[in-house]
Nucleic acid binder design. Sequence first.
RNA 1: GGGUCCGUAGCGUAGUCAGGAUAUCGCAGCGGUCUUCGGAACCGCAGAUCGAGGGAUCGAAGCCCUCCGGAUCCGCCA
Length: 638
Amino acid sequence: MSLRNLRNEAILLIDKLLQERKIDGINYTLVEPPSNAFGELTSNIAFQLAQRFNSNPYLVAKDLVDSLLIQLSNQRSRESLLNTIDAHPSGHINFRADWNVYPKAIIGEILDDSYGKFDFGKGKSVIIEHTSVNPNKALHVGHLRNMIIGDVLFRILSAVNYDTSVFYYVDDSGLQVADIVVGFMNAGFPIDPPDPATKFDQYCGNEVYVKINDLYIKNPDLQQKRKSVLKSIEKGNSDLSRFAKDISLRVLRDQLKTCWSLKVRYDLLNFESDIVASKMWEKMFELLKNKGRAAYETEGKNKGCWVIRGSDGDDDKVLIRSDGTLTYVAKDMPYAAWKLGLFSDPFLYRVFSEQWDTSILWAATLDTTVGSHAKRQFGGAEIVINLIDSRQSRLQTIISSTLSAVVKFEKERYMHLSYEPVTLSSRTAKSLGIDIGNTSAHMSGRKGIYVGADQIMEILYKKAKEEIRSRHPIMTDSELSGISESLGRAAVRYNMIKQDLERPIVFDLEESLSLDGDSGPYLQYAFARSQRLLEKGELTHRTNSLANLLHEKESNLIRELSKMDLIIEQCSSQLNPKLMARYAHKLAVAFNLYYEKVPILKETSESLVSARLLLVKAFNIVMRLALNYLGIDPLNRM
RNA sequence: GGGUCCGUAGCGUAGUCAGGAUAUCGCAGCGGUCUUCGGAACCGCAGAUCGAGGGAUCGAAGCCCUCCGGAUCCGCCA
């Protein structure tokens, strides 16, 4: 808050001055300067004015600063954090805090019990749908990116007081599931994995799914089976459809184990079969027909299908196939309408499972005979965020624009949060026995080109374990494995979140093993250091010595600490989880520099020791928050 | 062909929306800190015509235009 307060103070002065001079329409910035030597905040307002009045930026800046300083001295209150304002020869106007009171203001508010409660979301409801892996295979590293972005977003939006629900969409009625069913029913795969230690999701994905796709090529009869299986799955209410549902659920349970092991959680599972059976599509279909959006083709390549007409040059999009089954688009539109609360809720909710954080994972169902239904309603959120990779952008646009053409809602409420997918580096692909030359390869479950999420986590845990053992020869096994899992999780989570969503991640096994540098464990290390200091030192709450924190490394750390509330506001309003990762890293760097250069417990002056410990405590509090938002465990030792 | 996105040191990456002060951080490389609160750290060196060209501007990595290179989508798969 303190940086925000300082900023507001400056804005107040500037706006008042502009008002007095009857200048409007100036869109100035007031931001962190490139170097601390320029103070806490800097503004480009002199450039803007110089442009408008065709004069020299520096002269404008000097003139402005003179007036601002007079105002400041007239208005300075006891709470005032602003010390001085100066005009830099370059034309920038720099604002400096009063460092007699600034450290105490910042650290004091962090140490206060009310710190860390943000309200930018103001109870607005938001649905985040992520992961949603087809229930016929285990998760691979590509899915990790989706899941972790989604989870960090959930943590941040919840922290700023959005009313969040996390959805996992289970496509249990698609072709992929039919493939597995054909594998079991018609191609002779045993239902249980030959090796009982194999996870069922991995067995289905690595064995059955990959091999059945080969068999289709050799055996056209199987293709026919596949079609008829899909049809009866979609029709429902048969032994075959129940068998398919059982298989999906069994895979899903194993997928969830992977998600939970990374400390990702969900609120609700939605099954496509239930969405189809809910008759919401029939309602949507009527709307589409009434508004002239759906058309029946009597000739051409889509003969016998219902389609949406493509707009400006795009091809038509099939809604209902010639065999009467629904495509993804057709299934997704009524579902979207339900999420937005545009359709009444056809579902009941049953307890599916308890999760690692003791929260309940619910499942939507149409079955009225199952007990323990939820009182709460899902669906009908003010904002719906669908986390899907960028390759689906076009399709998502078709869905949302068609939907908005037939039912009325504000388009911004339904968004596709897009990110670039994860590919495999050629080196890693080669290590899997796939030669793709010097480029990177897209992962494909069907072709068997992927690195499994469970496998990569195992390798990381093992690597972390070795590291820890070399540092702490004496440690109990349970502590050792607990910490190594925390480290592995931190490494993966940080890696998946730290760069821009619009940049693809080329996954390389070797590189992902690094626990140094700009990494999750680096953040944990800084936190653990602060934790050790607080354990050894004696924390007093004598805040009056805080004004002595004038070492350069101290003021830098204090500056970083003051930014949290502006950062989390930006993260949540822009749906940009990367910013939190960047901030956490900057914070850790500032602390490590402080730790290296300034003696804390070794300091001889008692009042300085307590002031420095308070600063360490403040860092500890802010860093713990940041780590929690990122889903990284704050470790006491590592 | 059309749509979307990306080109920043050997590699990866921040900054681009809201133009302004020495272009961020990491990996790899070289050298150092090691009787010092935990070396998963810290310090130093070296490494970038910000894809190319043009334009508007006092000022461009950022804005506009053209081009080049790459990714991806344009299924009765989801």
